[in-house]
Design a protein around this nucleic acid. Structure first.
Lengths: 166, 166
DNA sequence: CGGTTCGTTCAGTATTGACTGAACGTTTGG
DNA sequence: CCAAACGTTCAGTCAATACTGAACGAACCG
């Protein structure tokens, strides 16, 4: 059980994991974080740092920092086992929930900026109106995302039989 | 009319514009792009490249590339005036629309990745189910954003009298 | 035709950040 | 105690990119 990953991944998996890395990089996040995410998404059991490092072919230092960063973002969950000193990482069950929440927070921070811009003494009437419209749009967007979040949580709490798929 | 901006901004405006720059930088975009956005958001008339450069205290080269990049993203609109060889930039009226659309596209690209991961031969049942759930969530999110977009366009097309302000 | 005024491009610099190997402190087990 | 196995940290390297000044080409104007 939980056989350690001593060798690299098979080509097909490696290619897919790499695509995760590239996607993350395109979004401005470290590529290794993407690879970790892709690999853990396909892993059933939580993986240790050494597992991740050898499977992905990167240094343990990078895995340590990136995994911890992903954990801080709520994307991964760190677990430990009795009698084992290692840390294990797995995809957090509600990972996207935390991610979406941080996106909503960012929108609100931008909204605060817009609010201050709107109140600037030098702002003309037209500028104020334009900013107000932006603000309304962003508020609507944050609201829409928050609503989706609530619906999803309600769905997650519903019994599996009432959903299309578990 | 359209008096050129030969000197820097007043302190309060400059501070706010700088906050836009910092916000953009935090989101992984060039800081100057944020400053341009903030400044144009407060400007009534479109601004020339030289106006932008002197007002923001940066080189014209930077303003040229960043303004063009923002234009490509649909964030700014470039205009010209008869008898004037200069280009003028202003906030695009439907700027957030294009921005949101590109966000939706990114989600769909990620969805394609998840679909491929789901179909990976080595994937176990549990992994497949986990990925399916992720995919459903992202699809719901893209749908929610697209819906918001439609609603907003409908609102934009409505006569001004039915809205709070034009 | 020059000379001026645009915008863009290009080479170069500086800054940021990803990534690594090695060192470190801690815990476990002999 | 010692040695091995953890995770973290730190100095250093490397690549990407933001930003600049100067050069460039095109359009306009005398």
């Amino acid at each position: 059980m939980t056989r350690p990953v001593t060798r690299s991944l098979d080509p097909a998996t490696a290619r897919l994991v790499e695509r995760f890395g590239l996607f993350f990089a395109q979004e401005g996040l470290p590529r290794i974080a993407g690879r970790i995410t892709g690999y853990l998404l396909l892993s059933d059991e939580p993986r240790s740092l050494d597992d991740l490092a050898t499977a992905l072919g990167v240094s343990k230092a990078s895995v340590s920092t990136d995994a911890r960063r992903l954990e801080a973002r709520g994307f991964l969950r760190r677990s430990s086992r009795p009698g084992d000193r290692r840390d294990f990482y797995a995809i957090a069950p509600d990972g996207f929930r935390t991610t979406l929440q941080s996106r909503i927070d960012a929108i609100h921070r931008f909204g605060a900026l817009l609010r201050d811009a709107e109140r600037l003494p030098g702002a003309t009437r037209r500028a104020r109106d334009r900013i107000t419209e932006w603000n309304a749009f962003h508020r609507a967007m944050a609201g829409s995302m928050a609503e989706l979040l609530e619906q999803w949580e309600a769905r997650a709490e519903a019994p599996a039989s009432t959903r299309r798929r578990a």
